[in-house]
Every structure is written in structure tokens, then in C-alpha cells.
Design a protein around this nucleic acid. Structure first.
Length: 497
RNA sequence: GCCGCGUUCGUCUAGGGGUCUAGGACGCCGGCCUUUCACGCCGGUAACACGGGUUCAAAUCCCGUACGCGGUACCA
């Protein structure tokens, strides 16, 4: 696919390195990725590090690591390079200055010398005199210290003296700026609602608005896919494209992800609902990247069919921007958990094992690969996280040290000890030991003793695993092996009397 | 406050004038299967924000209200 001007699709994810990559940021990256792949286009990563105050050193590494973990490979970016390098805005200052200069010369921007104190005073004055808003606009700029109010030689004098200044966009009065959002349709803003946006800050670095427009143009971005919080800034960007005489890319503003408690999924908002906000946390808590992506894709989009479980490649295939919704969506941890189970189940036992390996190692659980694979196969339908393999079935790796109290109360009878002893004896003497024989021996014993099979099955499970949870008893026994089963049966008889 | 965007089960959503006594998924509740726990299967719970229009007919189109969210920085 190409855009209206016939250019090949190019999209970008442009995070600000101010902290760990946010889960909402990952969704934005995902939608960009899906759109790019779907249309055979390019997906770029650009680091928008123009705010020195909020810059966090480790953030960029986390963004890169998170995208890599998730499997969202970008075609161009800081660590992979590309024709439009550098992909750090902090290394592109000269470019922005050049374009700001161009705007200045064309009369679309002007120098302003107001101090922060002067700006604050102006806003306070306006608010107190009952003005609806307090913006730096076509009216108020008349009262401020800028190139529009100061004599030209005074402006020059101040500039040469190195006076602190910013460059502001000269927003025209009384115009409607319209643009078509791919998700919301036509959106219109009155320029009277816009202020003379700062383009170049007093530290010489650009604001988001300038840097974003310049870079998107220079990098030939065809579709800007970003969060809805940018919708109100878009008219400023449209104006900038106009001033430069450039064609604006297509715009698509994604619905915001909300916390179940309402409001945006901020760190505070989310964490009080038990929802992690950084991608790193999801990784650490053991979510599968495919599951997270699948869940995120469905937060605001649906394929129009009843299929819900998708691999990344399948998402690429099914994705389209026109099936993205426009209303805010709530994060739902239960659903994510369900996706995680679904993706786990789709794995081969060997792959499941690979995912669980670090957790197994962390607990010091070790066994040969064949044994581990059988455990994985037995547990696959019973777990929600790969790490559950290391935390919910210890009995595959060590003898139980305690027995479930409720299970005992319900299942351990006066004759249990005698029955288990007899069962252990017969297992020891049996010719073979496998799933079928373990069952046959048990059922024969039950019949001879005139009790229901359950009378032996339940205490045996308790003796072997200490739990009332687990795979089918006989398949479990087959995996554990004869020696372990016998040992645990005798041990239980001893401990429980 | 002002501007913008939004509003279908608790949540994610299908639907976009008649096929809607509104479909699916998560959750929850029953049941079946079963030696347990899961899985699976069957069933149940539960929604078109409100008020006006337009129309033979509106969840679907229009207007208003309410509510929610976002923006309103020399942050992105």
C-alpha cells in the first residue's frame, strides 16, 4: 500500500526516554508495527529526547530491550541505523534550528523574550480579569516582549547581547484548521483556541511540535499513528506543515488505555489496581510477549471475526486501521491472563519448557530433558504462566514436606495407612511400572479389599504430591517413577499414621 | 472554565436504518465429563446513557443534555 501521494508506507514509534517503556507505549508501537508490516512498509524508532529536565539515562536501553523482547523489530532506529540517522532528536539540533530560521524568515515565527515570571504574570492577570483562557495568542502577544512588539533594532540588540529567547509560531487568527483523522474522521479546531506555540526553547532545543513535524517530514513518514492525547496538538502540526509548504502525513489517533479506576493508566492509577505499567514488569512477572501483544492488539481493535487468539504474524495479516475503535478502553488483567494461558497451550511441551527453564533454574529444580518434557506436557493445560511449572508442582522435583490439611481431612481415613502400605508393597513387587500397571494394581487392590478405588486414589495423591491438585494420578505416577512413588507412600504412612 | 474526542452486558467488543426477542470473548454462577485440579463441552447472568427529532421503521441518522476522557507548558 502507498499513501495518497504514492509513497511507500513509513511509520514511526517516537517515545520520549523519560522512564521505563509504558504498556500504552508498547501498544502504540504495536499498531505502528502491524500497520507497517501489513502494508510492506518500514517501521522506525526515533528517540524524542529534547527535554533535558525529564531525560532518564536508562530509559532508552529499556525501550530497545522491551521492543526486542516483545518481538517488534524496527527497520531503522538508534541502534540499527538507517538512511535518516541520527534517530536521536538530541543529535539533530542543527536541523531544527535551520528550519526554525526558515520559519522566522518567512514571517511564520518570531522571537520572544518574555521571562517565565512575565508569562506567569500575564496568565494570572488574564485569569483574574475573567478571561476564559490565558494563552499567548494574537491578542496577548501585543502586550509581551517579542519581535512583534519591539523595534527591529532592539530585537537585534538583544539577540546579539545573547538575551534568553524562544521562537514562537505566529498562529493566524480566526481560521479553522481541519484534518481527517483515519480513526475519527474530520476534526476541526479554531486557531483562536491555539496559542503561539514555542518552537525553539531558550536552551536552543526544539519542542516536540517542531522536532516532530520536521523529522516526520525529513524521514518521509506517511502515517502518524499515536495516542489520542496528541489530538489537540495536531492543528498546530498541520499549521506547521502548511508554513513549510509540506504535505502532512495521514493522522490516526488511538483511543487511550484507562485504569479500571478511571482516568489514564498512570503509574499511580494503575498500581493501585494492581496493574503493572511498564513493559519490563510484564516481562518480569512472566507474561508471554505474544500474549501481551495479542491482548494489547485487542485493546481498541478487533478483526471483525470471532477469532481472538493471534500470533504476531496473524495480527499483521488481520490488522487494519479502520477497525480501530475511537472510545477509550479499560485495561483488564483477567483477560490478559486468559491470553497468556491460550498462548502457553499453543506451545509444544519443549517450547513451554524453554520458557519455564529460567524459573526452574531459579528454584534449583533440575532433571533430565525427557523427564522435564513429560512434566511440561502434563502441566500445560493447568497453568497460566510458564513460571507455574516451577511454582505450582514442586512434587515433580522433591518429596512433599507437608500435606494439604483440607485434603487430609476429607480424604484420609482410618484405613488409609493400611491401604497405602499394601499398595506400596504391590507396586514394588509388580513386574512392570507404568501408567497402566499402576492403575491395574490399584484397582485390583481396591476390589480385593472391598473398597471403592477412590478410597486409595485420593490418599495416594496426597501422599505423592501433598496436594489435591494435579494431573491424572496414574500419569503422574508414571512420570515420578516406581522408587519415588513407593518412597512417598511409605513416608506418608509414617507421618500421617 | 474553554476546546476537542467519546458513550452497546462489570470489562473488551460485533453491529452502522428493517435479518436485534442485540451476537462473541473475559469474569461470575450452574451442570456435564472426571480419582483431584484444570482443560473441554452445555447452560445461565448481564448492555444499546438520557431527552427530543427524522423515518413506515433507529442500537444504527440529526440535535440537545448528562457523564467520561484528553488537551489547555520554554513536557512529551
Amino acid at each position: 500500500m502507498v499513501d495518497s501521494s504514492g509513497a511507500p508506507v513509513r511509520v514511526r514509534f517516537a517515545p520520549s526516554p523519560t522512564g521505563l517503556l509504558h504498556i500504552g507505549g508498547l501498544r502504540t508501537a504495536l499498531y505502528n508495527y502491524l500497520f507497517a508490516r501489513k502494508h510492506g512498509g518500514r517501521f522506525l524508532l526515533r528517540i524524542e529526547d529534547t527535554d533535558r529536565e525529564r531525560y532518564v539515562e536508562e530509559a532508552e536501553a529499556d525501550i530497545v530491550a522491551s521492543l526486542r523482547w516483545a518481538g517488534l523489530a524496527y527497520d531503522e532506529g538508534p541502534d540499527v541505523g538507517g538512511p535518516d540517522a541520527p534517530y536521536y532528536q538530541s543529535q539533530r539540533s542543527e536541523i531544527y534550528r535551520h528550519y526554525a530560521q526558515q520559519l522566522l524568515e518567512a514571517g511564520h515565527a518570531y522571537y520572544a523574550f518574555d521571562t517565565p515570571e512575565a508569562l506567569e504574570a500575564m496568565r494570572e492577570r488574564l485569569q483574574q480579569s475573567g478571561h476564559a483562557s490565558a494563552r499567548y495568542d494574537a491578542v496577548t502577544r501585543q502586550q509581551m516582549q517579542n519581535a512583534l512588539t519591539l523595534p527591529a533594532d532592539e530585537v537585534r540588540r538583544r539577540l546579539e547581547a545573547g538575551a534568553e529567547h524562544v521562537v514562537r509560531l505566529k498562529v493566524p487568527r480566526g481560521r479553522m484548521v481541519r484534518f481527517q483523522d483515519l480513526i475519527r474522521g474530520w476534526v476541526a479546531f479554531d486557531t483562536a483556541e491555539l496559542d503561539d506555540q514555542v518552537l525553539l526553547k531558550s536552551d536552543g532545543l526544539p519542542t516536540y511540535h517542531l522536532a516532530n513535524v520536521v523529522d516526520d517530514h525529513l524521514m518521509q513518514v506517511t502515517h502518524v499513528i499515536r495516542g489520542e492525547e496528541w489530538l489537540p496538538s495536531t492543528p498546530k502540526h498541520v499549521l506547521l506543515y502548511e508554513c513549510f509548504g509540506w504535505t502532512a502525513p495521514a493522522m490516526a489517533h488511538l483511543p487511550l488505555i484507562h485504569s479500571p479506576s478511571g482516568g489514564k493508566l498512570s503509574k499511580r492509577n494503575a498500581e493501585e489496581m494492581g496493574i503493572p505499567v511498564s513493559v519490563r514488569q510484564y516481562r518480569e512477572e512472566g507474561y508471554e510477549p505474544e500474549a501481551l501483544l495479542n491482548f494489547l492488539a485487542f485493546l481498541g481493535w478487533n478483526p471483525g471475526t470471532e477469532q481472538e487468539v493471534f500470533t504476531l504474524d496473524a495480527l499483521v495479516e488481520a490488522f487494519s486501521l479502520d477497525r480501530v475503535g475511537s472510545s477509550g478502553v479499560q485495561f483488564n488483567l483477567d483477560k490478559l491472563r486468559w491470553y497468556n494461558q491460550q498462548h502457553l497451550r499453543a506451545l509444544s511441551p519443549g517450547d513451554l519448557l524453554a520458557r519455564a527453564a529460567p524459573h526452574l533454574r531459579a528454584r534449583g529444580f533440575d532433571a533430565d530433558a525427557a523427564y522435564l518434557r513429560r512434566v511440561a506436557a502434563l502441566m500445560q493445560d493447568r497453568i497460566a504462566f510458564a513460571s507455574d511449572l516451577a511454582t505450582s508442582c514442586d512434587f515433580f522435583f522433591e518429596d512433599p514436606t507437608a500435606y494439604d490439611a483440607q485434603g487430609l481431612k476429607k480424604r484420609w481415613k482410618d484405613d488409609s495407612a493400611a491401604l497405602l502400605t499394601a499398595y506400596a508393597d504391590r507396586l514394588e513387587q509388580a513386574d512392570a511400572f507404568d501408567e497402566a500397571s499402576a492403575e491395574a494394581v490399584l484397582r485390583t487392590l481396591a476390589e480385593e479389599k472391598g473398597v471403592g478405588a477412590g478410597r486409595i486414589i485420593h490418599p495416594t495423591r496426597l501422599a505423592l504430591s501433598g496436594m489435591t491438585f494435579g494431573p491424572g494420578l496414574f500419569e503422574m505416577m508414571a512420570v515420578l517413577g516406581r522408587a519415588t512413588c513407593v518412597r512417598r507412600l511409605r513416608r506418608a504412612v509414617e507421618v500421617l499414621v
